[in-house]
Simulated scan of single mutants.
Amino acid sequence: MSDNSSAPPTGVRLQKVLAAAGVASRRVCEQYIAEGRVSVNGAVVTVPGTRINPHVDRVAVNGSAVQLDTTKRYIMLNKPRGIVSSMRDEQGRPDLSRFTAHMEERLFNVGRLDVETSGLLILTNDGEIAHVLAHPSFGVAKTYVAKVRGAVEPRTLTALKSGITLDDGPISVDAVRVLDAHGSTSTLVELTIHSGRNRIVRRMMAAVGHPVVDLVRRSFGPLHLGTLRSGEMRELSKDELGGILTIARNAHVTGEIASKEYDAGTTATSPRTAPDTKEESR
């Protein structure tokens, strides 16, 4: 964003950029700017007509980040059981390509769910978002609903919150509660965890004596599966997109770093080519 008034005008008017990004009409965007609800690179802008570089500058409205690049796509998928979290499975098993074959953009999945785990999976062509949401170091919380064997007692919930030790070290959940119990046969448990370790929910529940029978990821960061049915997908809403963009920007991850890890979905850590033995129910 340039503040040199003597230089020839460069960039694009802020209200025009916001309108093109789908925030609101140009007139309404001008009102947002005048009311101090818009910031550019962290600084509030109150002068309509301020010019920015939409390829470089980062804009937020009411504190929520706005994606100015309209070529980026963000899809929420309710992955069914039996689908491999890969865009191309070398063993010929059902994979995510069946959901993206009709799309012009080359999308890839953010993180993974193992074959027998269903639920919320994000598909995108935005490497920066993918890097932040999927990388364990950023600790994005995920919530799962697990049907487990046996009756889960309060002391077991306490142990999960206090922490247990697995082969790869100590681990604890952020939150856990019983949703439903079926006598001594099975229990429906909701767990929230930010760890990205391999099959962590299944391993934790097995360690406390309650193997998982069925596992569904219900939320991923600020995103919630809601009523989206198994096998269905939809575009993220503006509020949902703003939520994950805000996480990415707060994490201070540059597009250059992200693109190195997710370049065309061909790197060793890419969900497009990673071995299925490393699939995770994060």
Rank of each mutant, 00 (worst) to 15 (best):
I122E: 03
I171C: 08
V212K: 07
S195F: 06
N125M: 02
L191Y: 01
G150N: 04
V115L: 11
A134L: 00
L228E: 00
F108Q: 11
L245P: 09
L241Q: 13
K238I: 15
H252R: 00
T158M: 13
L223D: 07
Y144R: 05
R217E: 01
L166I: 11
R197Y: 06
I122R: 09
T124H: 05
L160S: 04
R197L: 03
E116A: 00
E190K: 15
V201M: 12
T187N: 00
R217M: 12
A159Y: 04
V208S: 08
M233E: 15
S195K: 06
R149I: 13
A151E: 13
G231W: 05
F108L: 12
S219Q: 10
E128H: 13
A248Y: 01
V173T: 14
G127K: 02
L120M: 11
S184D: 15
A134S: 14
M205K: 00
H194D: 12
P222K: 10
G231Y: 10
N109E: 06
I244V: 15
P154S: 01
R203Y: 03
G139M: 11
T117Q: 03
S162T: 15
G139Y: 03
L223E: 05
G209Y: 09
G226I: 10
M205L: 13
F108G: 04
L188F: 08
A151Q: 11
N109C: 13
M233A: 12
A207D: 07
R249Q: 10
M204I: 05
D126V: 04
G119A: 02
S162I: 10
D239E: 15
H135W: 05
Y144T: 07
H252F: 00
G111A: 11
D167G: 00
L179H: 05
H252V: 08
Y144L: 00
K142N: 06
H135I: 08
L228G: 01
N250E: 11
P154Y: 03
G243A: 12
A207M: 09
R112Y: 03
L225Y: 09
G139S: 13
H131E: 12
D167K: 13
L245F: 13
R217I: 07
S237F: 07
L191V: 15
P154C: 05
E190H: 10
A146W: 08
V140R: 06
L157T: 14
G119Q: 05
V216A: 11
D114Y: 00
R229P: 05
V176R: 04
V173A: 15
L113H: 03
L120P: 09
S219P: 07
L120V: 06
T192K: 11
E153T: 13
G231L: 02
F108W: 09
V212C: 10
A175R: 12
D168M: 06
V212M: 11
L188W: 04
G196A: 03
A251D: 08
T246V: 10
K147G: 12
